[in-house]
């Protein structure tokens, strides 16, 4: 078959995927108030963004939530992956199945079930409820990332380290952790991004005490056009791009 047809097709789809993003970036530098016509180059929407104290606070809140959710889910997820990999225990299949179900379920199903739980036990909706919810939906992704790394891991490596005189602790520090490190970092970055991007679950389990960025954006874009959102979106895009390049670089570098 000729080569130009599939290639043109690929190019066309990529074009469609990137046009909205390009429009967003270009319009973030637009001086015009209305948001549709080009009114010259300007940074006014970026200024407006950082002048908005509630917005800045929401940014910090989101960043802190994403950092903590990614860290906690990486810790628990890595331990879970290790347990699934190293131990034989009853209900292993069930545990695996539960993680898979969490990953596949529509977010909204997870969201209402967690809301029901939090209200039932009388927990105040805010940072803690957001953290618990975000860790829960990040967890399976971390487990899968680490498991993939462990499945390529030679069972004999820990034994080789012990054989050469390393204690269990030293073996974990010098062999086990360095070998799964790329997966831990990749899992952490994935968790961070998922948390930062989440709208559906956060809509349900957040409270007035802790406003986060996606919900603030949500309330802004529901009605009309807000040019600040262009600026904010561009910043988020650059941010995710850096994170993504970082994680891909880590994964590629460690592939052997």
């Amino acid at each position: 078959m000729s080569h130009w047809l599939p290639r043109t097709y690929l190019a066309l789809v990529y074009l469609l995927l990137y046009v909205p993003i390009a429009v967003l970036v270009v319009f973030s530098f637009n001086d015009s108030r209305t948001g549709y016509e080009w009114g010259g180059l300007s940074l006014r929407w970026y200024e407006a963004l950082f002048d908005n104290r509630a917005m800045v606070r929401a940014m910090w809140n989101s960043l802190w939530l994403a950092l903590s959710a990614a860290t906690v889910s990486t810790l628990i997820g890595a331990l879970t992956a290790l347990a699934l990999h190293r131990y034989r225990f009853r209900g292993k299949q069930i545990l695996n199945g539960m993680l898979f179900v969490v990953m596949m379920s529509p977010e909204i199903v997870l969201a209402i079930s967690l809301l029901a739980l939090f209200l039932l036990v009388g927990m105040q909706l805010g940072y803690v409820s957001l953290l618990l919810a975000h860790v829960t939906f990040c967890l399976p992704f971390v487990v899968i990332t680490v498991m993939a790394r462990l499945s390529g891991f030679d069972e004999r490596l820990p034994e080789a380290a012990r054989d050469l005189g390393a204690s269990d602790f030293v073996m974990t520090r010098t062999v086990l952790i360095p070998v799964i490190m790329p997966a831990l970092l990749a899992g952490w970055l994935l968790g961070f991004t998922l948390s930062l991007d989440d709208v559906v679950v956060s809509t349900f389990v957040s409270g007035p005490t802790y406003e986060i960025l996606p919900l603030r954006i949500y309330s802004m874009v529901r009605v009309g056009l807000k040019p600040e959102v262009n600026a904010l979106g561009t910043l988020l895009l650059v941010f995710s791009l850096v994170m993504l390049i970082l994680s891909q670089w880590i994964l590629l570098r460690s592939r052997r």
């Binding site: 909205p20 429009v23 967003l24 991007d197 954006i217 979106g233 995710s240």
Partner: peptide
């Protein structure tokens, strides 16, 4: 996967512009 890592609300909003 770049778009997948980019805030989905923001991308939906970009469609609104168009």
């Amino acid at each position: 996967i770049v778009p997948f890592w980019t805030n989905s609300l923001v991308r939906t909003y970009a469609l609104k512009l168009i």
